[in-house]
Each structure stands twice: as C-alpha cells, then as structure tokens.
Design a protein around this nucleic acid. Sequence first.
DNA 1: TAACATATATCGAATTTTCCGATAAAGAGG
DNA 2: CCTCTTTATCGGAAAATTCGATATATGTTA
Lengths: 295, 295
Amino acid sequence: MRYSLRQLEVFLATARYENVTRAAEELAMSQSAASGSLKELERQFDMKLFDRQGKRLQLSELGQQLRPQIESLMEQARSLEHALTGEDGAGRLEIGATLTIGNYIAVNMIADFRQQNTKSDIILRVANTATIAKQVAGFELDMGLIEGELQHPDLDIVHWRRDELVVFAAPNHPLATSNALSDQDLLTLPWIVRESGSGTRQAFDRAMQGILTDLQIAMELQHTEGIKRAVEAGLGVGCLSQICLEDAFKRGSLVPLPVPGRDFRREWYIITHRDKFHSAALKRWLTLCLQRWST
Amino acid sequence: MRYSLRQLEVFLATARYENVTRAAEELAMSQSAASGSLKELERQFDMKLFDRQGKRLQLSELGQQLRPQIESLMEQARSLEHALTGEDGAGRLEIGATLTIGNYIAVNMIADFRQQNTKSDIILRVANTATIAKQVAGFELDMGLIEGELQHPDLDIVHWRRDELVVFAAPNHPLATSNALSDQDLLTLPWIVRESGSGTRQAFDRAMQGILTDLQIAMELQHTEGIKRAVEAGLGVGCLSQICLEDAFKRGSLVPLPVPGRDFRREWYIITHRDKFHSAALKRWLTLCLQRWST
DNA sequence: TAACATATATCGAATTTTCCGATAAAGAGG
DNA sequence: CCTCTTTATCGGAAAATTCGATATATGTTA
C-alpha cells in the first residue's frame, strides 16, 4: 500500500474546507503535519490534488475526480472501526427530505425505523430538492427523499413512490358537492397555493398548464398547514399533496374536489451517491424505504 | 483511525493461509513483523482475531465475522491505488461459470466485454455451482454465473436468464419428424446425457420426474460436444441446453424433438459476495451481464 | 504604501511506529 | 529424544509522523 488512511483523512478534511489549517484543527494535528502529509501523498503518486496559487488552495480536477472514491473508502474504514470496537451497527444516518415528504412521511418512517434500530441516530434535514441533491453529492447527507425530476452524474436516482395532488375546499364551499370541476370552474376560483420554487408548486403549475397564467392566485404560503387553515376559513381553494390532507378529509374539515380533466400525479425519488458506501444502518434504512414505505 | 491498511493486509494474508510465516512471505516482510502487526491490531481493539493453540493458528469466530468487511475494504483500497497511479479501471476480473455457461456463453460475453475494455484482464474459471459459490463467498472469485438453486447468507443471488433444455436426435432418427413426443416415446428411447451431479443432469432429472427411474440411460458423458457427436452417430437421443444446440440445429446435423408434456425450463443466476466492493471493471461487467446478455 | 493578519511550505528535532534478525517457546513427526 | 516447523518476543535500526519555529506568499487595512 503506497498510502495510509491518515493521509486520506487529511486529504478529505482539506478538500472539505479547502483550507489546511482548519483541516489540521479538525484532525487535532499541527498545520505543518497536515501540509506534509498532503505533500507526501502527492509525491508518492506524483500528482497534484490541489491547485495552489499563493496562499489559496483549491481542489484540482484530479482531486475532485478522486474525492468520491476516497470518501467512500474512509466511510467504510470508519464503519470497520465501529465493527472492531464492537459497537454494533449503530451509526448515525443523516437523511434529507423535502418539506412535504419530511413533515408528512419521513417522521413516521423514522419512528418506524427507530423501533427496530434503537441504537441508530437519524438526523432529518428538510430542504428543497436542489439543496438535498447537492448535499448528497457532497457526502454531507447519506441519502435524500426528493420530489423534482433530476439528472446528476454522481447520483443514483431510483423511483420511490407516486404522489398525487388534490384540489380541496371547505365543506360548505359551493362546489363541494360537484363531482367534476371543469377548466371553467378552476378559472373562477381563488387559489391558495405553495410558494414558487417549491416542489408542490411546480407540480401544481405543471398540472395547470394551458390555463396557468389565467388562474387567480389569491395567496401564496410557505407551509401546508397555513394553506389548509386558510381554505378551511373559506378564503379560497387549495391544492396540496394527498398525504397532507388525509386527516382533514377523514375529519371532514376539508373536502376533495375532483378534477378529472387534469393530471395531478407526480413521482418521488430516492437519491444516494453512486460511490457511497452503504453501511449496515443505511442498508436497513433503504430497505425500509423501498419495502414498507413505497407505493 | 486506530488501525492501518498494512495491518489489515497482514490480517487478510494470515487469514487466508492461517499461517503467519507464509503470510509474511507473501507480503515481503519478516515473520516477526507480521506477528507483531497482528498482535498490535488485536491489542488496539482488545480482541482475538485468531485462536492460538501452541503453534497452530486459526481464525476465531470474530475474525471470520470481520473478514468479509476487511476484504471489501482492502479491495476498495487497491482500487483506489490504481486510480491514484493513473491506471484507468483496468483491473483483473476473475469470474466463475458452470461448464455449459462457460463454454457456450461466457466466452462470447468476455469477447464482447474486452472489445470495450481492452485493458481489463478477465479470467474465467469453470467449475460446478457449489464450487463457484464457495469461491465467491471466500473472495477468490469476483462473481459467478451458476445454474443450480442456492441459498447462502453471504451471497447476493440475482436471477440472470432463463434457459431451456431441448431433446434432440439425428436428422434420420425415426422420431425426427414427430411433432410431439409422449412419455411413452421417451421411455422407449436410449438416452445420452450428462453425468450425475452436473447442473444439466439435475435439470434433466427434474424434467423427467415420474418416469425418471424407468428411462433407459444408454450413456453418460461429461462433455456436451461428446453427447452431440454420439447422438449424431445415431447412438440415441440427447437432452442439452438450447444454447449448446443452436449451431447444430442451423446446420441440420441435429434436430429438436418437441416434448410438450414436460417442463425443461431452468433458471440461471448471478452471484456476488454481499460485502464485495464493486470496482469499476466489475460494475461494467455486471451491467453487461444484466443488460446485453440476460433474457 | 506600509503594517498587519492570514495561510501554506519547509526545516530540524523529537517521538512513535514499523521492521528486522536473533532467539525462546511450543508443538508435530519421526 | 531429536529434528523440523511455527509463533512469540526482544533489542536495536530504520522509517514515518508529528511538532514548533520560521520563511514565504498574499490579501487587508490604516
């Protein structure tokens, strides 16, 4: 072996901060040791992992190319260390989810998972699809549950489940008993929807294509609960994922309005980094996602 | 990191030979260094990787449990070393296949693979299903193409393709023009088949269940080519995988005999070790197996 | 522009790790 | 009982890693 795990550790920390001093701090070593370790790694393989211009340090193209593989290797090494120290497959998982998925499904999934994996910590980070994808690609998250369509050379994107938006209103709304809303109906209604840029709004816009610009958007809110309350109060009709509405429909506080003429389906995906090392805990989590929580 | 890659290297070599002296030889180091390295690894994690009784050394239960993970880690480390030295994804692949698969498909698959991966060496080892499974489980082979049904806690077994045996005879055989052989017909014929224990024979026996003991086995041969020649010579009828016979049927040197009453289908599988690190070359090979060469 | 703050590289010395050769200890086989 | 083989251990040599100090380069601020 021409290199050591320690050298890779230094490389990764430096790659993350693009700063040797902070990397050395994190690894509890002197700056000179870190610098030397890095230099030695580069010397042994006769290559440049970083571009140096003065005191500035930047991952070189080669470094960027190698980083995923090295992250994966180090993660496996850490996992082995846990196995060696006898800490059985605990391992903390950091997962990302969009707002809708995070609030309405992921929390239940995590509760489910923790029942059988009492030792695993799960950290849920809620963000939009693009942010989650970026963090998964940068090994900051172990996996992500996202809404939007996405292409990324470093990511494994697998279909997870189908979701459907539902148009809904207060029970006393004039159209509450209608069994089919036409485009004409849609155009007369005041809409209360999620803000632009959210996955739910994107799906809504797509479903309304053709009449989108003529719709009357009465309110844009950032939280699904706010939208439901506004609709309950009779301020307009809403359009949200079915999973946000199940309870309200059961209670009768809101009612669905059928819109047969438009397609409100959308797909959800699971993303992981292609080169990600799948720890025991991550494997169990992914299995649970795909088996018990997919459609 | 409480351990080094070198220590893992020593552990693996020692685990393979269960002999420190030979392990040290392989790693070009002194026996004392190897012994010390091993001892240090055990001390750091306060555990016994080997059971010692006198001069005898044996992998402990813990050692056996840890070995797959360590094999996987070291393989990834070697793969990274290749990436660092700039040798692009060459990497030698050692694959196992049964006799039928090896001779009639795997060689073509390898030719196909090598066209696009000129730098990869592929080594094909032909053996029976049980042997291949054992070698894949012991990290001696990277993957295997097998026939029989199999259960193994350490192996990933995925369905690959469906095969079908075909009963065949020489063109001038009295039944050559028959369009459906009955069980009565089967019982009157002299059979030339593969030897007991082979996957093909197992499939044959299964297909013939009920009348198996009453069949007239005229000859058992170990090679498919021998069986075909014997059948051509009019010594009896044969039963082999369709892929061994395609050419002969095209040439007209042999003809298939339809046996609608019996099920000659069988399944082929791809096996890998669950903890196996999938190198770039292995990934490409598995993709080729499943995309271009599966049914 | 000068003074300062910040970041990386380099050097020698101290420390730690790794390795070797020699040797002791412990079976296995005649 | 002797010989051969194998593992463990010891002291010292060699190599590596690390640290503190310092040189160098470069932004920043007065």
